[in-house]
Design a protein around this nucleic acid. Sequence first.
DNA 1: ATGGGTGCAAAGGATTTGCAACATT
DNA 2: AATGTTGCAAATCCTTTGCACCCAT
Lengths: 153, 153
Amino acid sequence: METISKMACGRLEACGLKPSVQRLMIMEYLLSHCTHPTVEDIHKALGRRMPTLSRTTVYNTLRLFAGHKAATMITIDERRVCYDGVTKPHAHFYCRECGRIYDLDVENVPSIGGTLNIGGNLADEVQLYYKGVCAACAEKKQNIINIINKTNK
Amino acid sequence: METISKMACGRLEACGLKPSVQRLMIMEYLLSHCTHPTVEDIHKALGRRMPTLSRTTVYNTLRLFAGHKAATMITIDERRVCYDGVTKPHAHFYCRECGRIYDLDVENVPSIGGTLNIGGNLADEVQLYYKGVCAACAEKKQNIINIINKTNK
DNA sequence: ATGGGTGCAAAGGATTTGCAACATT
DNA sequence: AATGTTGCAAATCCTTTGCACCCAT
């Protein structure tokens, strides 16, 4: 607990952000939950300990984090934006069945140190996304198919 | 004109889709505009020739295309979904200033033939996104800075 | 006449905006 | 006092839904 709190504070200061209570709580949540939470996820989770926390503040804060590279905005899900507190380059997997986003440990993940010039375009961020059906959902689907086959016999 | 029309029809049939008038028009638009249009873009553009075309139909049709791999859904822009008629694997660049999405000709773009098993997760799609400021917007910004500097002298 | 395809209006949901209240230096 | 933060309610914008109509087989 102590450690996460210090890590959160360190990250904010390293990114030039003043560590307000709300910002600290949100950063702590990001660092301790690698589930790529949505605004709603974070607002609901933190709302228990801080009932006055506004959804607007969560929106503003996460957008602020992304702008200062204190967190990454993930747009893999067409319906809502997610956020990631892990900064080291890694790929993501999006499951179309359950909507969950997983970290992926694949080789050759492109990364950018500072700014990359691609044909005159100045890139400061890369994202590598895979989409499909996750292991858990694939298994569930298979089980259902098995049951149907058994019933039809 | 003839050619695009035939290409559109061919793509639909190859993907197991019945070539209705609306589907053909939307596919023709996708194949002849590599600007990664939004639903709104397409609806507005086609609305001139076909005023009864419903936004709902554009939504439904593009989603259908994506489901049948007749087009690709692009979720790089946090605000709205875009579509791409180009099927061969390539990366995208998103400009935070103007919101435009460019095709990128970079090496080592990962691609999936059929389905790829990544730690039990079954992926059927990959996306590689770069984000930053495009060449055109970078130049504009530089011009403004130059004017300000000149004025301050 | 049956089933898929289309279109309209309304609903739903995520995100932003405007502004007032608040905290902190 | 000044500046940056937060929170509420309302507004906005994108997308989906429900249902009726229509067209083709």
